[in-house]
Computed example of a mutant assay.
Amino acid sequence: MKRKVFVVTGNTGTGKTSVTKYLNEFYEMPKVVTHTTRQPRAGEMDQVDYYFESHDTFAQNHYLEQVTYDGNQYGSSREGLERAFEKNPLITIVLDTQGAATYLEELPADEVVVIYLTVSKEHDLYQRLVKRGDDVQKIHERLSSEEYVRDTQIPENLQAQAHVVENDDWEETKNKIDAIVQASIQND
């Protein structure tokens, strides 16, 4: 079986974590562990949730994409990809749309499957964020951020290759994800 990285992208609240968890559990796709210089939160484990790095060790990896957010560095490395591929030829990662575009540019086209999640009603995104327990003030900040606005529509550089999945109904979404996975595997 050929190597494939399933890149799950889309806006805040569209279900990226749920879809990735489904791919992890149902298809046994390991997630690519990414790197950060931020401190671990309660319950987070090094090499499971992130590779928790110092600024010095962070700089030693070979990144496909990286970003500084809230004073901390985040990135996904070629080393992290290889570690995930050692476990399974099918792997998954959650990226913002810019990161997804970078993966399409940097990796062989037949190795990247982009799944762009959306919902039919923008109001649903707000309700999902409230339901998962996010701070209301933080939700409003996030919904007015440049990144949120950017990711409300699929970027032009992803349109030709991304599978757009409207995640309004979880059972329908799983069926769409299953179809994407099967088509991706059969195309080898």
Rank of each mutant, 00 (worst) to 15 (best):
L95Q: 04
L95G: 06
L95A: 09
L95M: 13
D96M: 08
T97V: 03
T97M: 08
T97P: 08
G99I: 11
G99S: 08
G99E: 02
A100S: 10
A100P: 06
A100E: 14
A100Y: 15
A101P: 11
T102V: 11
T102R: 15
T102D: 07
T102W: 13
L104Y: 11
E105R: 08
E105V: 13
E106L: 14
E106K: 14
E106I: 04
L107S: 11
L107E: 05
L107R: 08
P108Y: 04
P108A: 01
A109C: 10
D110W: 07
D110T: 03
D110K: 10
E111V: 13
E111Y: 14
V112Y: 07
V112N: 09
V112M: 05
V113C: 05
V113A: 06
V113W: 15
V114L: 02
I115V: 09
I115E: 01
I115C: 01
Y116P: 01
Y116G: 01
L117R: 06
L117G: 04
L117I: 13
T118P: 08
V119S: 00
V119L: 01
V119I: 02
V119G: 03
S120H: 09
K121Q: 07
K121M: 05
E122M: 11
E122G: 14
E122F: 13
H123W: 12
H123R: 04
H123C: 05
D124L: 04
D124G: 13
L125T: 06
L125H: 02
Y126M: 01
Y126I: 12
Y126W: 15
Q127S: 04
Q127V: 07
Q127M: 09
Q127N: 14
R128G: 00
L129Y: 01
L129C: 03
L129W: 05
L129A: 02
L129R: 00
L129P: 14
V130D: 00
V130P: 01
K131H: 07
K131G: 14
R132H: 01
G133F: 02
G133L: 00
G133R: 00
D134W: 12
D134S: 03
D135G: 05
D135I: 06
D135N: 13
D135K: 07
D135S: 02
V136W: 12
V136I: 08
V136S: 02
Q137N: 05
K138Q: 07
I139M: 00
I139N: 00
I139W: 00
H140C: 05
H140Y: 09
H140A: 01
E141F: 09
E141R: 12
E141V: 15
R142H: 10
R142E: 12
L143A: 09
L143D: 08
S144E: 09
S144A: 05
S144V: 12
S144N: 11
